[in-house]
Protein backbone atom coordinates (compact mmCIF):
# COMPACT_ATOMS: atom_id res chain seq x y z
CA UNK A 1 0.00 0.00 0.00
CA UNK A 2 1.23 3.47 -0.90
CA UNK A 3 0.46 6.79 0.66
CA UNK A 4 -1.11 9.04 -1.89
CA UNK A 5 1.12 12.05 -2.73
CA UNK A 6 -0.61 15.36 -1.97
CA UNK A 7 -0.79 16.42 -5.59
CA UNK A 8 -2.80 13.30 -6.47
CA UNK A 9 -5.36 13.66 -3.70
CA UNK A 10 -7.63 16.07 -5.53
CA UNK A 11 -7.52 14.16 -8.86
CA UNK A 12 -8.12 10.91 -6.98
CA UNK A 13 -11.09 12.42 -5.17
CA UNK A 14 -12.38 13.65 -8.55
CA UNK A 15 -12.03 10.20 -10.06
CA UNK A 16 -13.93 8.58 -7.19
CA UNK A 17 -16.51 11.33 -7.33
CA UNK A 18 -17.06 10.53 -10.99
CA UNK A 19 -17.81 6.93 -10.05
CA UNK A 20 -19.99 7.86 -7.06
CA UNK A 21 -21.84 10.69 -8.82
CA UNK A 22 -22.66 8.45 -11.79
CA UNK A 23 -24.05 5.88 -9.40
CA UNK A 24 -26.00 8.35 -7.29
CA UNK A 25 -27.72 9.91 -10.30
CA UNK A 26 -28.47 6.57 -11.90
CA UNK A 27 -29.77 5.18 -8.61
CA UNK A 28 -31.79 8.33 -8.05
CA UNK A 29 -33.42 8.11 -11.47
CA UNK A 30 -34.09 4.38 -11.20
CA UNK A 31 -35.39 4.50 -7.63
CA UNK A 32 -38.17 6.77 -8.87
CA UNK A 33 -39.56 3.75 -10.72
CA UNK A 34 -40.33 1.99 -7.45
CA UNK A 35 -44.07 1.33 -7.52
CA UNK A 36 -44.49 2.15 -11.20
CA UNK A 37 -42.55 -0.46 -13.23
CA UNK A 38 -44.34 -2.56 -15.89
CA UNK A 39 -44.52 -5.80 -13.84
CA UNK A 40 -44.65 -6.08 -10.04
CA UNK A 41 -41.79 -8.58 -9.89
CA UNK A 42 -39.59 -6.37 -12.04
CA UNK A 43 -40.57 -3.37 -9.94
CA UNK A 44 -39.00 -5.15 -6.97
CA UNK A 45 -35.93 -6.25 -8.92
CA UNK A 46 -35.29 -2.87 -10.52
CA UNK A 47 -35.64 -1.19 -7.14
CA UNK A 48 -32.99 -3.52 -5.71
CA UNK A 49 -30.63 -2.48 -8.48
CA UNK A 50 -31.38 1.18 -7.79
CA UNK A 51 -30.63 0.63 -4.11
CA UNK A 52 -27.34 -1.03 -5.06
CA UNK A 53 -26.33 2.02 -7.09
CA UNK A 54 -27.12 4.38 -4.23
CA UNK A 55 -25.45 2.11 -1.68
CA UNK A 56 -22.34 2.00 -3.89
CA UNK A 57 -22.39 5.79 -4.11
CA UNK A 58 -22.67 6.01 -0.33
CA UNK A 59 -19.70 3.69 0.23
CA UNK A 60 -17.60 5.68 -2.23
CA UNK A 61 -18.61 9.05 -0.75
CA UNK A 62 -17.54 7.77 2.65
CA UNK A 63 -14.06 7.03 1.26
CA UNK A 64 -13.87 10.39 -0.48
CA UNK A 65 -15.11 12.18 2.63
CA UNK A 66 -12.19 10.67 4.51
CA UNK A 67 -9.82 11.84 1.80
CA UNK A 68 -10.94 15.48 1.64
CA UNK A 69 -12.54 15.93 5.06
CA UNK A 70 -16.30 16.16 4.75
CA UNK A 71 -19.27 13.79 5.06
CA UNK A 72 -20.96 11.46 2.60
CA UNK A 73 -24.27 13.32 2.89
CA UNK A 74 -22.61 16.68 2.38
CA UNK A 75 -21.07 15.31 -0.81
CA UNK A 76 -24.38 13.96 -2.06
CA UNK A 77 -26.66 16.83 -1.04
CA UNK A 78 -24.45 19.81 -0.29
CA UNK A 79 -22.63 20.47 -3.57
CA UNK A 80 -23.51 22.82 -6.41
CA UNK A 81 -24.09 21.37 -9.84
CA UNK A 82 -20.61 22.31 -11.15
CA UNK A 83 -18.93 20.35 -8.34
CA UNK A 84 -20.47 17.08 -9.57
CA UNK A 85 -18.42 14.82 -11.86
CA UNK A 86 -21.15 12.65 -13.36
CA UNK A 87 -21.52 12.01 -17.09
CA UNK A 88 -24.32 13.33 -19.31
CA UNK A 89 -26.01 9.95 -19.73
CA UNK A 90 -26.87 9.49 -16.04
CA UNK A 91 -28.45 12.92 -15.99
CA UNK A 92 -30.85 12.02 -18.81
CA UNK A 93 -34.43 11.73 -17.56
CA UNK A 94 -36.56 8.82 -18.74
CA UNK A 95 -40.04 10.25 -18.15
CA UNK A 96 -41.10 6.76 -17.10
CA UNK A 97 -40.28 5.27 -20.48
CA UNK A 98 -39.07 1.74 -19.73
CA UNK A 99 -37.02 1.51 -22.94
CA UNK A 100 -35.04 4.61 -21.95
CA UNK A 101 -34.52 3.36 -18.39
CA UNK A 102 -33.28 -0.04 -19.57
CA UNK A 103 -30.98 1.33 -22.29
CA UNK A 104 -29.52 3.92 -19.91
CA UNK A 105 -28.81 1.14 -17.44
CA UNK A 106 -27.33 -1.00 -20.24
CA UNK A 107 -24.69 1.58 -21.20
CA UNK A 108 -23.87 2.43 -17.61
CA UNK A 109 -23.70 -1.06 -16.10
CA UNK A 110 -21.30 -2.39 -18.72
CA UNK A 111 -19.15 0.69 -18.32
CA UNK A 112 -19.18 0.48 -14.54
CA UNK A 113 -18.19 -3.15 -14.50
CA UNK A 114 -15.09 -2.28 -16.56
CA UNK A 115 -14.29 0.79 -14.51
CA UNK A 116 -14.64 -1.06 -11.20
CA UNK A 117 -12.49 -3.95 -12.39
CA UNK A 118 -9.85 -1.38 -13.24
CA UNK A 119 -10.13 0.28 -9.84
CA UNK A 120 -9.96 -3.14 -8.21
CA UNK A 121 -6.30 -3.21 -9.33
CA UNK A 122 -5.56 0.19 -7.81
CA UNK A 123 -2.43 0.63 -5.73
CA UNK A 124 -4.71 2.24 -3.14
CA UNK A 125 -5.81 -0.76 -1.14
CA UNK A 126 -9.06 0.51 0.44
CA UNK A 127 -10.31 1.64 -2.95
CA UNK A 128 -9.20 -1.60 -4.61
CA UNK A 129 -11.00 -3.67 -1.96
CA UNK A 130 -14.19 -1.68 -2.25
CA UNK A 131 -14.11 -1.73 -6.06
CA UNK A 132 -13.68 -5.47 -5.99
CA UNK A 133 -16.81 -5.92 -3.89
CA UNK A 134 -18.83 -3.49 -5.96
CA UNK A 135 -17.73 -5.13 -9.24
CA UNK A 136 -19.23 -8.43 -8.06
CA UNK A 137 -22.59 -6.70 -7.56
CA UNK A 138 -22.27 -4.90 -10.88
CA UNK A 139 -22.16 -8.33 -12.48
CA UNK A 140 -25.74 -8.98 -11.28
CA UNK A 141 -26.81 -5.71 -12.87
CA UNK A 142 -25.17 -6.53 -16.21
CA UNK A 143 -26.92 -9.91 -16.38
CA UNK A 144 -30.25 -8.37 -15.45
CA UNK A 145 -30.13 -5.56 -17.96
CA UNK A 146 -28.75 -7.74 -20.75
CA UNK A 147 -31.68 -10.10 -20.43
CA UNK A 148 -34.11 -7.18 -20.73
CA UNK A 149 -32.29 -5.91 -23.84
CA UNK A 150 -32.67 -9.34 -25.39
CA UNK A 151 -36.25 -9.92 -24.36
CA UNK A 152 -37.48 -6.54 -25.53
CA UNK A 153 -35.28 -6.36 -28.64
CA UNK A 154 -36.57 -9.75 -29.72
CA UNK A 155 -40.10 -9.27 -28.35
CA UNK A 156 -42.67 -7.64 -30.62
CA UNK A 157 -42.23 -5.17 -33.49
CA UNK A 158 -43.37 -2.45 -31.14
CA UNK A 159 -40.92 -3.35 -28.40
CA UNK A 160 -38.03 -3.58 -30.87
CA UNK A 161 -38.85 -0.17 -32.31
CA UNK A 162 -39.13 1.42 -28.89
CA UNK A 163 -35.83 -0.10 -27.79
CA UNK A 164 -34.07 0.95 -30.98
CA UNK A 165 -35.28 4.50 -30.57
CA UNK A 166 -34.10 4.72 -26.97
CA UNK A 167 -30.80 3.05 -27.84
CA UNK A 168 -30.13 5.51 -30.67
CA UNK A 169 -30.96 8.52 -28.55
CA UNK A 170 -28.74 7.44 -25.66
CA UNK A 171 -25.89 6.15 -27.86
CA UNK A 172 -25.23 9.77 -28.76
CA UNK A 173 -24.46 10.70 -25.15
CA UNK A 174 -23.31 7.37 -23.69
CA UNK A 175 -19.62 7.90 -24.63
CA UNK A 176 -19.70 10.84 -22.20
CA UNK A 177 -18.90 8.15 -19.63
CA UNK A 178 -15.36 7.99 -21.08
CA UNK A 179 -14.52 11.66 -20.76
CA UNK A 180 -11.40 11.79 -18.54
CA UNK A 181 -11.31 13.76 -15.33
CA UNK A 182 -8.66 16.44 -14.88
CA UNK A 183 -5.15 15.02 -14.37
CA UNK A 184 -6.38 11.50 -15.02
CA UNK A 185 -3.10 10.59 -16.78
CA UNK A 186 -1.21 11.30 -13.55
CA UNK A 187 -3.39 8.83 -11.65
CA UNK A 188 -2.80 6.28 -14.38
CA UNK A 189 0.96 6.86 -14.29
CA UNK A 190 0.99 6.38 -10.52
CA UNK A 191 -1.03 3.14 -10.86
CA UNK A 192 -3.74 4.54 -8.63
CA UNK A 193 -6.03 4.16 -11.61
CA UNK A 194 -4.19 1.40 -13.50
CA UNK A 195 -4.23 1.36 -17.27
CA UNK A 196 -6.95 -0.89 -18.66
CA UNK A 197 -5.61 -4.21 -19.93
CA UNK A 198 -7.27 -3.66 -23.29
CA UNK A 199 -8.62 -0.41 -24.70
CA UNK A 200 -11.59 0.26 -22.44
CA UNK A 201 -13.75 1.95 -25.03
CA UNK A 202 -13.25 -0.88 -27.55
CA UNK A 203 -14.00 -3.52 -24.91
CA UNK A 204 -17.15 -1.69 -23.91
CA UNK A 205 -18.28 -1.21 -27.51
CA UNK A 206 -17.69 -4.89 -28.31
CA UNK A 207 -19.65 -6.08 -25.25
CA UNK A 208 -22.57 -3.82 -26.04
CA UNK A 209 -22.59 -4.64 -29.76
CA UNK A 210 -22.69 -8.32 -29.07
CA UNK A 211 -25.72 -8.00 -26.80
CA UNK A 212 -27.38 -5.60 -29.26
CA UNK A 213 -26.87 -8.13 -32.06
CA UNK A 214 -28.36 -10.90 -29.93
CA UNK A 215 -31.27 -8.56 -29.32
CA UNK A 216 -31.98 -7.74 -32.99
CA UNK A 217 -30.92 -4.14 -32.31
CA UNK A 218 -28.40 -1.91 -34.09
CA UNK A 219 -25.84 0.04 -32.15
CA UNK A 220 -23.48 2.68 -33.43
CA UNK A 221 -21.00 4.07 -30.92
CA UNK A 222 -18.20 6.56 -31.45
CA UNK A 223 -15.40 7.45 -29.04
CA UNK A 224 -15.85 10.86 -27.41
CA UNK A 225 -13.89 13.68 -28.93
CA UNK A 226 -10.88 14.48 -26.74
CA UNK A 227 -11.83 18.18 -26.97
CA UNK A 228 -15.23 17.70 -25.34
CA UNK A 229 -15.58 19.24 -21.92
CA UNK A 230 -18.56 17.82 -20.07
CA UNK A 231 -19.73 16.40 -16.79
CA UNK A 232 -16.36 15.02 -15.68
CA UNK A 233 -15.12 18.61 -15.56
CA UNK A 234 -18.29 20.04 -14.04
CA UNK A 235 -20.03 21.13 -17.25
CA UNK A 236 -23.42 19.48 -17.09
CA UNK A 237 -26.54 19.07 -19.17
CA UNK A 238 -29.64 21.16 -18.46
CA UNK A 239 -31.11 18.14 -16.65
CA UNK A 240 -28.79 18.20 -13.65
CA UNK A 241 -29.85 21.42 -11.89
CA UNK A 242 -33.56 20.47 -11.67
CA UNK A 243 -32.56 16.96 -10.58
CA UNK A 244 -30.49 18.45 -7.76
CA UNK A 245 -33.23 20.91 -6.81
CA UNK A 246 -35.59 17.98 -6.35
CA UNK A 247 -33.08 15.71 -4.64
CA UNK A 248 -31.95 18.39 -2.18
CA UNK A 249 -35.34 19.99 -1.56
CA UNK A 250 -35.65 18.75 2.02
CA UNK A 251 -31.93 18.76 2.84
CA UNK A 252 -31.67 22.45 1.91
CA UNK A 253 -34.51 23.42 4.26
CA UNK A 254 -32.07 23.05 7.12
CA UNK A 255 -28.68 21.84 5.89
CA UNK A 256 -27.13 21.53 9.34
CA UNK A 257 -30.02 19.61 10.82
CA UNK A 258 -30.14 15.88 11.27
CA UNK A 259 -32.91 14.29 9.26
Amino acid sequence: MITLPDNLKRPFADLLLAVADDKLMLGHRNSDWTGLAPILEEDIAFSSLAQDEMAHAQALYQLIAGLIGTSADALAFGRKSEAFRCAAIVEAPDEFDWATAICRQFFCDHFDRLRLRRLARSSDKPVADLANRLAAEEQIHVEHVDSWMQRLGRGTDESRQRMQKALDRLAAIAPSLFEPIEHEHELVAADVYPRAETDMFETWRNELEQIANDSSLKLDLHPPSPQTIGGRRGKHTEHLPPLLDEMCEVYRLEPNAAW
Binding site: I39, L40, E41, E42, I44, A45, S47, S48, L49, I140, E143, H144, S147, R151
Partner: peptide, 17 residues
Amino acid sequence: CVDAADQQMALQFAREH
Protein backbone atom coordinates in the same frame (compact mmCIF):
# COMPACT_ATOMS: atom_id res chain seq x y z
CA CYS B 1 -44.26 -17.44 -5.82
CA VAL B 2 -43.34 -15.18 -8.71
CA ASP B 3 -45.06 -14.75 -12.05
CA ALA B 4 -42.68 -14.85 -15.02
CA ALA B 5 -42.44 -15.68 -18.70
CA ASP B 6 -39.93 -18.50 -18.24
CA GLN B 7 -37.63 -20.10 -15.68
CA GLN B 8 -34.76 -17.71 -16.26
CA MET B 9 -36.98 -14.71 -15.67
CA ALA B 10 -38.51 -16.43 -12.66
CA LEU B 11 -35.04 -16.94 -11.20
CA GLN B 12 -34.11 -13.33 -11.85
CA PHE B 13 -37.26 -12.12 -10.10
CA ALA B 14 -36.94 -14.58 -7.23
CA ARG B 15 -33.37 -13.45 -6.52
CA GLU B 16 -34.51 -9.88 -5.89
CA HIS B 17 -37.89 -10.62 -4.26
